[in-house]
Simulated scan of single mutants.
Amino acid sequence: MICSADLPTDLPVLAAFEDHYRAGYVDPWHAHEHAQLAFASSGVQVINTDGASFILPPNRAIWIPPGTNHQTICRSDVVFQVVYVDRAFRPHNDRCHVFEASALLRALIGEVVALAGRYDSDARSTTIVELLLGEIDRMPDVPVQAELPVDRRLRRVCEAILADPGDSRDIDYWARQAGMSRRTFTRSFRDETGMGLATWRRQVRVMEAASRISAGEAITSVAYDVGYDSPSAFTAMFHRTFGATPSAYCRR
């Protein structure tokens, strides 16, 4: 841990720090009493909750509401900053979600972290905290999450696809794996995730691709690995999801 701060409770921010982990590190399942705002300055993390799986690429942030059971997996060496926010503060979107981090938001997070040991409740510090919390709701969401079903049979299927997004086996195979008829599987999967299996798997593939490209892997090899027949088809899907080509996404 590089720096840590325990801030006074007259403002919603309770603590802030910067830390780094090696590739492959797994932070086991746990929950916090207060909300967590985490910003990835470098590296790629996977954050799993009971209800969804998220990719946190570099220069994006994630909001984790208080009491959310979650696990973090580092796909590469990671440097990140964390701000713990009193549970009384609730942004408009209080669900766990990944969002863009503007230059202003990144600077404000850095300033809150830099207050370690020097917080004196002056006007500047108060303004920084208020601006930080106000910026959260202004940031657009990044579509790098996949909803997970509650049904254990469906969840096993989802976990298998998350482990190998390039697996192209069809819905009949996965229905058999779940011990369901095709019709029951299709209806149950849509009821629990809000989308069909093909759409859900496409989302997982583009999430996986975003994380691997952000970690520096070649776009062409990633396209084939996650199940696309050609780089052009992959680029088209990536652009529809993120509004940018893979190379532009990395530059951004």
Rank of each mutant, 00 (worst) to 15 (best):
D122N: 14
D137I: 07
D151R: 04
Q145S: 13
R138E: 12
Y119F: 15
F185T: 02
A123D: 14
T184S: 13
D151L: 06
R187V: 04
A178P: 00
A107R: 15
A163R: 04
A114N: 15
Q177K: 08
E192S: 09
T184P: 04
V113A: 13
R153K: 03
D170Q: 04
C96F: 12
I109F: 12
G134K: 11
R183G: 01
P140W: 00
V98S: 08
L104K: 10
C158M: 07
L154N: 00
S168D: 12
R124N: 15
A123N: 14
P143C: 05
R95N: 11
A116Y: 07
M195T: 08
W200Q: 08
V112T: 14
E192A: 11
R124Q: 15
G179V: 10
L131W: 14
M207I: 08
A123H: 15
E208C: 04
R187I: 01
T186E: 08
V157G: 01
V142Q: 06
V206H: 00
R124V: 15
R176I: 05
C96P: 13
T199V: 12
A114F: 09
R152I: 09
G179R: 07
E192H: 08
G134C: 08
L105I: 02
P140N: 01
V204M: 10
R187Y: 00
L108V: 00
R106I: 05
S102K: 04
L154Y: 02
V204G: 07
Y119I: 11
V144D: 01
E135N: 07
L115Q: 15
T199H: 07
D137Y: 08
D141T: 13
D191R: 12
A101G: 03
R187L: 02
R205Y: 02
S125P: 03
M180H: 05
A107E: 15
R153D: 10
R106P: 00
A114V: 08
R138N: 13
C96E: 13
M139K: 02
V112G: 10
T193P: 10
Y173T: 12
E135H: 08
R190D: 07
S121G: 12
G196C: 00
D164A: 11
R156V: 03
V157D: 01
R202Q: 11
I171F: 06
R169P: 02
R201N: 05
G134M: 09
T193G: 10
R95S: 11
L104I: 06
R95T: 11
V142D: 03
